[in-house]
Design a protein around this nucleic acid. Structure first.
Length: 298
DNA sequence: GCTTAACCTGGACGC
DNA sequence: GCGTCCAGGTTAAGC
């Protein structure tokens, strides 16, 4: 029997394209989603609160305070031919084909570049649940109230200007030393102009990555996360401790115990590009998610 | 170009 | 209860 409140949702036909919200929203690319009543995903995207549920090949959605179908479509990349991406990746690698069957419906998102950048600045030497908690703290303190819904207040991620000028961001206890980095990155973004970050979407992957890494506090990993999760650079391969472990396990990389130097980072990323080409980032996300589940069970 | 330490916090773990 | 380790990194110094 359909949940009574679902009658207030809009419905989109997915046209046979895969989408699994449980996996897509928890696979480590976004931090502001929570599941309610066992079936509805709720999260703040830009200046809207979004509720999502998928069933029978359709996506049920609604946004607050006003309807915004364009935002939902853009965020979930619904106009992308993901089935074709799966087919191309599956034909290159039997192991990956198995993961694509197992995690069918995992999608890359198109997130706000600034929020993605700041989120991964917070991720430095941090655990995923603490990153999510810290981001909610920052949003509640410095973001704008989006709406009140179901007895809770929801806040947007703070603007770059707000983070740059908020003198106490650097002292936010739960962020630790990351608070100072957050503010420094925000100040550098301000000095580069309002559209600098968004303009990177129109550059090549290597150009966008190089520009991001010119910011103090942004290294290879964070730059690649922004490229992959926010700038449509599907060839970007963020290399972290999970990816490093899985290339040891799957591809026999003899790097156990060695620190992740720039050279090693580039070698691992190159191995992905060699195997999966311009879809290396999609492949990375499937492999990463498997390793994430493995570490959660451990 | 590699290694190491420092940067903060808090949960997990062993004792 | 206490000490230690570690978590989706980056930077700078030393070699």
């Amino acid at each position: 029997m359909e949940h009574p409140s679902l009658s207030y949702f809009h419905s989109l036909d997915l046209n046979g394209q895969p989408l699994n919200l449980d996996i897509t929203l928890t696979c480590g690319q976004a931090f502001r989603w929570q599941k309610h009543d066992g079936e509805i995903w709720r999260g703040v995207v830009r200046d809207k609160l979004i509720e999502l549920k998928s069933c029978d090949g359709r996506l049920l959605w609604r946004t607050f305070p006003v309807d915004d179908e364009v935002l939902v479509r853009d965020y979930l990349r619904l106009d992308e031919d993901v089935a074709s991406i799966y087919a191309r990746l599956s034909s290159t690698d039997r192991y990956l084909a198995g993961l694509i069957r197992r995690f069918h419906g995992l999608r890359l998102l198109r997130q706000d570049p600034a929020e993605t950048l700041f989120s991964f600045v917070c991720s430095t030497a941090n655990s995923i649940h603490r990153i999510a908690a810290a981001i909610e703290t920052v949003a509640a303190q410095y973001g704008e109230l989006v709406c009140e819904h179901a007895s809770a207040c929801y806040y947007s991620f703070p603007s770059v200007e707000k983070l740059a000028s908020a003198s106490t961001v650097a002292g936010t206890k739960s962020l630790g030393f990351r608070g100072r980095n957050l503010q420094l990155v925000a100040q550098q973004l301000c000095s580069r102009g309002a559209y600098w970050l968004d303009s990177l979407r129109n550059k090549t992957y290597s150009e966008a990555r190089r520009e991001l890494m010119s910011l103090w506090g942004v290294g290879r990993k964070i730059a690649d996360c922004v490229c992959l999760f926010a700038l449509d650079k599907d060839e970007a391969v963020p290399v972290d401790t999970h990816v490093r472990q899985l290339v040891c396990r799957l591809w026999g990389f003899d790097i156990n115990g060695k620190s992740l130097t720039n050279g090693l980072y580039d070698r691992i990323a190159a191995a992905f590009t060699e195997r999966y080409g311009l879809l290396a980032g999609w492949a990375q996300q499937f492999l990463f998610y498997e390793d994430l589940l493995r570490s959660r069970k451990a």
